[in-house]
Design a binder for these strands. Sequence first.
RNA 1: CGGAGUGUAGCUCAGCCUGGUAGAGCACUGUCUUCGGGAGGCAGGGGCCGCAGGUUCAAAUCCUGCCACUCCGACCA
Length: 438
Amino acid sequence: MRLTRYFMPTLKETPAEAQIISHRLMLRAGMVRQSAAGIYSWLPLGLRVLKKIEEIVREEQNRSGAHEVLMPTIQSADLWRESGRYDDYGKEMLRIKDRHDRDMLYGPTNEELITDIFRFYVKSYRDLPQNLYHIQWKFRDEVRPRFGVMRGREFLMKDAYSFDLDYAGAKHSYNKMFMAYLATFERMGLKAIPMRADTGPIGGDLSHEFIILAETGESEVFCDKRWMDVDLGGNDIDYDSDLEPTIASLTSLYAATDEMHDPDNCPIGDSDLLQARGVEVGHIFYFGTKYSEPMGAFVQTAEGKQEAVHMGSYGIGVSRLVGGIIEASHDDSGIIWPDAVAPFDVGLINLRQGDGETDSACNDIYDKLNNAAVDVLYDDRDDRAGAKFADMDLIGLPWQIIVGPRGLKNGIVELKRRRSGEKIEVSLDDVVARVSAK
RNA sequence: CGGAGUGUAGCUCAGCCUGGUAGAGCACUGUCUUCGGGAGGCAGGGGCCGCAGGUUCAAAUCCUGCCACUCCGACCA
C-alpha cells in the first residue's frame, strides 16, 4: 500500500479525551475514531489489526473443534424472559422497541439465542458434545465506558458455547477451550495468565479469567512470581487427549483475581507473590444447566431419560485485545506490534521522494515485496525524514526499510527492527530476501 | 448513580475574572527555498465560541436550564 493513496490520519498531538496509553496511541495512529462514549469507528489501520486478531481467534477455535456460526446483534426479548434474565440484567442491556412496539434488545451476550438454536435441533445424547461460537458485536450500556476500546460499550467478542451430556463431558469441553485460549494468546505475542475467577451464583471452581499484565490494567491480580518464567505456548495440542494433567500442572501455580484472592489464606508467601494490574482478555465458564433447564434444552440419554445439557461459555474480547496488546507492547515512540497482528509486515521509507534514483529503488523493493506476498506500507509522501520516521515508529510495524541517497551511493539500505530498535545495513539486492525470509 | 472537571478552527489550547470587530501553534491550499529524526519564507482558506433562554445599547465573556465528553468512586454474566 502506498501511503499517499491510503487513509491513515496520524496525529502529532494527543487528543485530550484519551487518558491511557493504548487509547492515545490508537487515536494518534489513526486506528479508530470515537463516535460516542464507548463507541468507535474503525479506520483502515485499526481494522487491519482487528481482523488479524479475529482470524487468529477463529483459527484456534476451529482447531479445537468448535464450529463458527453468526447470530444477530438484535434479539427478541422473549427468549430472555424464558431464562429470566430480561428482568435481571438491568440497565446495562440496551432495550429497544420495533415499529410494532415489540421489545427487542441489542445483545450483550448470547446464551439464550444459542440455547434456542441448540434445543430446536438437538434431541439426542448421540449428537453431543457440541461447541458453537461466533464473533459478533455486542453492546453493554456501561455506566462509565473508559480506556478506549478496552472498555467500550460496543465491542467485538468471540463467544463460544459448549453442550455436553454431563459434568465430565462439560469439563473436557472446558479444558479444550482453556488450551485453545493459551494457544490463541500465545500466537498474539501475549502472556495471558489463567486466573481462578469468581463464578458468581453458580459456584464451583470452573471459571478462569485470562489476564495480561499491564500497569494500566483495570483489575488487581495476584500470582506466583514463577508465572513470569512459564512458557504458555500451547502448540500441537491433541484436543482428543485428556487435557486435565496439563491444565492441573499449569494451574498449580497460584494466580487469582482480586475477588478470589484472600490475603489471609494465600497458599504462597509474600516473597513469592506478585501483585500487579491486569487486563482481562478472556473468560471461560462452566455453568451447568442454568440455561438449559429453564429453556428446555434437553436430550434423550441412552437410558431413554430426558436430561438438561451441561453448558459452558467462553469469551474473548477481540476489540479489547487491540488495546490490550498495545498496553503490553509499546515504547515512548509508539506501538510495537507483535509480528502476527501487525497491520503491515514492513514499512518502506523513501527519504527523498522525487529523487529519481531513490524513487526507482523504492519502487523496485515495493514491487518485489508485493510479489513475495509481504504486506508493505510504502511511505511515498513528499515529506521530511523526521515526520516519516516518527509516523513509522508510531504505527509500530515490525520492520522498516529505510532508503535514501546516502546509502544508495554504496548500494545500501537500512533495515530496522522496530522492537529492538536495531538497524543494520543491507545491500539493495538482499533486502527483499531478508524481509521475506523472516 | 454520587463527586469533580471540560466544551472556542481538523488537533492542542489562549481569550472569559474586568462584556465592546474571533486569536496562536500545529494541520490544510498555493508558491519558493530546504531535505538522513516532526524545516523556513511569502500568500491564503477554514469558526451557529456545545445548545436554548435570560440580562444588556452590546454576550465567547454575566445568569438559568439542558446536552455532550472526560476523570474519581460505585458497577462490570
